[in-house]
Every structure is written in C-alpha cells, then in structure tokens.
Amino acid sequence: MSTENEANHNGDGAEAPENLPDRRGSERLAAPVVRTGMFGTTTTGDTSGYGGLRVRGSAPAASSRPFTDPEDPRTADFDRVADDLEAALGEGAGAVERIVVDRGEITFHVRRDALVEVARALRDDPALRYELCTGVSGVHFPDDTDRELHAVYHFRSITHNSQIRVETTCPDADPHVPSIVSVYPTNDWHERETWDFFGIVFDGHPGLTRIQMPDDWHGHPQRKDYPLGGIPVEYRGATVPPPDERRSYK
C-alpha cells in the first residue's frame, strides 16, 4: 500500500505547467459563456487582477425535439417517453407546457390542474408504467412572478428502468396544487412535508397537517422569505451573527 501511495504522491506531476491549479480544467470553460470576471463580482470589486472565471449559461428554458441525443446514453428513451406520454394523454396533451432536457434528465412542466391526470397516465399506461414516485420536493422562487412555488416530482419506472421529472407551479397568492395521493399513496407524507415547509396546499390530500414542525408553528420555514432563524453566538466577548445575517460572498 505504501508504495502505491508514494507512486500516487509523485505520479500525476503536479509540477507540469498544464496541471498547475490555475490552468487545470480549462476545457470545461469551452461551454457558452454568459459572464466573465471574478467569482460573481458585479461591481469593480475585482482587486485581484485574476479575471479568469467564466460563468456558463443557465439551464435551457425549453428543449425541442429530438430529446434523445445519440451521443448521450442517458437520454436514450426520452423521445419514446415523450411520445408515449403524449399518446396516453390524448386530447389533454396540452397539459404539458414544455419539456426540458438538461444534463441527461428530462423534465415535463405540467399545468397544475392536469397534474393528477398526468400522474395517472404515468402510472397506468402500459408503455409508461412509472410505478414509483419518489416524493415531491418544493422549491420557492420569489422572483418567478405568479409561479413562485414549484412542486417537483420524480417518477421511476421499474418495468422500463426509466426516470423522469414532472414539475408544476403555483402562484404564492393561490398556493394550491392537486394532491396525487390518490394515485401514488406514497406521496402522503411527502406532500405533508412540502405543505409544512413551503405552504403549498395539496387539494384532495386525506389529511394535510404539519408533519415535521410542531402543530402550532407559524410560517413555512423553508421558504426563501423565512429567515434561517439562527441566534448570534457569543464566544469570549466577541459575537458572531447567524449565517444568514453575515457578510455574504455573492
């Protein structure tokens, strides 16, 4: 083992110029660049003279066919799934607002009123057979006006060994999303948790009560407008503010 370790210590040539820490990984930067400059500084805060960092483009808003990229094996069944879902929904296919393929994962953005229908099609259609729903995850985007609250579902098909994501949104003023517990009973607690943390009301849930927080808790703590709630920590006379009130590196 020790020889192996030593070889490893000297083996990969940290002194070679192309491997110096400030050179390595430059090929990743070939991707589209949306912004250059120091780590996120928007003002003239860059006093280092090191402006090499480039920020790549954000996730695509929507993808178009074909969804299957022959170069990427992870996307192999995306075209088939999209076709099958469209066929299964029939006239209701308009419920799928857009489809995003990003980083080898496919996301169906679904109108909230059609969510149960889509879930039922995903579970029951023989060509789809997404037997397993791995829960719902809430995400809060305060700046995404009228679509502030997102509910993200992941479905897994054991029959076809496939995995997709379904995303639906609701405005903060009307935080209602239909519950899919009637289709996937496993989502019972997951929806309660998302209600507890984000305040999304899942209509039709058999018993939508708080699950993690105490019953008399006020607010929904994992929303972005809810403070982290830490206290200042005093140590030998000096005080450190809680993490969300500290000076932040942007």
Partner: peptide, 13 residues
C-alpha cells in the same frame, strides 16, 4: 451543548 452547527429555526441552541 450549544446547538452546534445547526444554528437555525429548528434546533434549541
């Protein structure tokens, strides 16, 4: 003892 690394809404400090 002190809340540790979880200085947040959920944990008694």
């Amino acid at each position: 003892s002190s809340g540790g690394m979880f200085n947040n809404y959920a944990i008694v400090q």
